[in-house]
Design a protein around this nucleic acid. Structure first.
Lengths: 149, 149
DNA sequence: TATTGTTATACTCTATAACTATA
DNA sequence: TATAGTTATAGAGTATAACAATA
């Protein structure tokens, strides 16, 4: 199987595992992705729209729906009167933590057939591709921040 | 970077490249995926819904919209009076062919930083994961069929 | 009775255009 | 004037429930 085919099928596989993992928490993939982006701290709407590749108004709606579930909220940006920052609520921080761990578990299981050294090799090759393409930290490690609820 | 994080970020990267590639043809990722699944020949609605992990009615809508664009059409299943098969139209087969090639190109470019042997290694490791998890052929190589238009 | 598919309805996701408010 | 964000509107994607037709 060629590399492009392998990458596209991997996308399909990981996508399903991701959606499965977060569905247990009653949220959609998009809402989960939004939450992952603000785990490390509040971020502005424009910033988030840029990272997610969404129109501003699309993000407004996504934040609205996620806020309605009590997982995020808007806080005014002290350095810019026009801007709003999106932050996790206390409940959101808790859900994000558990959802992240569950997703790691689900996705990790996909590689059950690989040996430890093969997993490391795969991770390092993918890391190269990710770094080369400057993929934003849409799913991260460490860097939790306090909820500003 | 751990393997789960690398896989989730890869999903994000490939997803964007895939959407980019097919947008040039005026279709959505979902419609492109549907078309890829019937490149090798007509398939039934239930079959497709199962592979895509969609509710039956969701697929009805997806097929409706793709058919409205003239890319697929329904043909009765000769072996089951209840069933409909989804097939590419002539235009759909043409679009699918070009869109597939373009997607391969886009996705292949993501690995520009890897040497030829690294690409082969990455492809083989991902192939193992794909095979282990019995990922359906949502994006394939070879196996073109004639359009039944 | 079970299966295939559609329809009705509702919600989520997304984009474009027009708008408000602040820089 | 440019930027941050929202609102209005429309279309695409998805699910559940009820239904029709065939197996």
């Amino acid at each position: 199987m060629g590399l492009p085919t392998a990458l596209v099928r991997t996308r399909f596989l990981v996508d399903a595992a991701y959606a499965d993992a977060v569905r247990d928490y009653g949220i959609t993939s998009q809402q989960a992705q939004l939450m992952c982006l603000v785990i490390a701290g509040p971020r502005g709407m424009c910033d988030l729209a840029g990272v997610l590749g969404l129109a501003k108004s699309s993000l407004t709606g996504l934040v609205d729906r996620t806020a309605k579930r009590g997982l995020v909220h808007r806080v005014p940006d002290p350095s810019d009167g026009r801007a709003q920052l999106v932050a996790l609520t206390e409940e959101g921080a808790d859900v994000a933590e558990r959802m992240h761990a569950s997703t790691v578990q689900h996705v990790d299981n996909l590689a059950y057939g690989l040996s430890e050294s093969e997993r490391e090799l795969l991770a390092s090759l993918l890391s190269r591709v990710i770094t080369d393409n400057e993929v934003p930290k849409v799913f991260g490690e460490g860097d939790r921040a306090q909820a500003s609820a």
